[in-house]
Design a protein around this nucleic acid. Structure first.
Lengths: 217, 217
DNA sequence: TTGCCTATTAACCATTTGGTTAAACTTTTT
DNA sequence: AAAAAGTTTAACCAAATGGTTAATAGGCAA
């Protein structure tokens, strides 16, 4: 947070150790389930250091929460600012999103839970990084345009948006149930997610396919 | 839990008051965020009563958790044991599921969170109500059959299953984000969910529509 | 009424938890 | 080298929390 690094590598190391430990523990247990002691233990340092670098549990959480979201959002959004055919965009988006989530499997459950607990965090967050409202607008626009161009059949952009996100995210928040219901091991579930990238893109594009009238592409 | 009711209505009333309060508080805050004191306050009784009727916080939680799931599952499953055309089944299922969730909006986030925290609960749960594994099997079967009958295009039943659940559930776990992104008030969001029932069913059926003999893609 | 059982409460207890402090240790500055 | 500034630790503290207990109130049977 604030320091006049004497030997930058070592000091930064401590702060980073804390952040990494805090991320792991907060993601796994949530802010309520996490304790400062456990974070300190995972970081391998004294508990007082947490308060030395970050004033309080809430402050530390805030930093982790912010970092977590900011690490993901730009990657996901990026696809929608690139110039490519609509169907390619869908394919890339799904693949990218699932890739990111596979690399951070605990993230969606963490973010969604904490946001449900205190939705105020969202407004506080949007205030600091004001590019979030635009991304959905961008998405809506492009769907709307694709409909206009006859590339896809008419759909309500908002409904479609929620559907796409839901289909991508759900396997990660519901993993315990789904592995049980499908009788799959962890490794098999990874495979399932791998296959899902292509399956989902095709599923979505099929759902959007314009009715047998004009047939562009 | 256990009592020899003298005046049955009053005693039952107390136990029910506890259960209702516990449900509300657990659903809202999760087991970690909830405190016995708050539950007692909401129920309007002394904290010791919680331990008198249910031995511990964990036991009380277990009861609430079990009740919560058992209240929903049968309703949802029912559709898939009725005899009707596949597309009608999809429509009914989506409508029914979203209806139930609208009546218990906090439920999915609650269940998913607690299941992510301690997946052991699932096995403990399945042990007591052993009809759960069958429902997904039933679903898979029926999708498989529909494919065979040429009613729908070939899809992996598991992938399809996850997609349908995800699209139904996601709007409820991600409500704070979605209302923000879509700039909707609570009432407007209710409307969105209302419309979603029909939109989603059509979306799904479109995605499943078997291709005509014309060259695919 | 009297005794018995259940229900209910206030007070209490041990542990955990977030947070503080003062002293010790290390690094930088002069 | 000595002072100053920054870093780390052990010990400590107050509040909150899950849980217990002993005493009280209240219905019911004899």
């Amino acid at each position: 947070m604030s320091k006049k690094a004497t030997s930058p590598n070592k000091e930064l190391s401590t702060e980073l150790k804390i952040l990494e430990a805090a991320r792991a523990v907060f993601h796994a247990r949530g802010i309520d389930g996490a304790t400062m002691q456990e974070i300190a233990d995972v970081a391998g340092i004294n508990k007082a250091m947490l308060h030395y670098y970050f004033r309080s549990k809430d402050k530390l959480f805030e930093v982790v929460f912010h970092e977590t979201i900011m690490k993901v959002i730009p990657q996901v959004v990026e696809v929608f600012f690139q110039d490519m055919p609509f169907d390619e965009k869908i394919r890339r988006f799904v693949e990218r999103y699932i890739d990111i989530l596979q690399a951070n499997p605990a993230m969606p459950a963490f973010v969604l839970h904490e946001l449900n607990q205190r939705p105020e965090r969202l407004v506080a967050f949007i205030g600091s990084a004001s590019n979030i409202p635009n991304i959905s607008g961008r998405f809506f626009e492009q769907v709307h345009q694709a409909v206009k161009d006859g590339l896809i059949k008419p759909v309500t952009p908002e409904q479609f948006f929620v559907s796409v996100l839901g289909m991508c995210v759900f396997p990660f928040i519901a993993k315990p149930i789904l592995t049980a219901l499908m009788g799959r091991s962890d490794e098999e579930y990874q495979l399932f997610l791998q296959e899902r990238k292509v399956h989902l893109a095709e599923f979505i594009l099929d759902a959007l396919r314009p009715l047998p009238k004009t047939k562009p592409k």
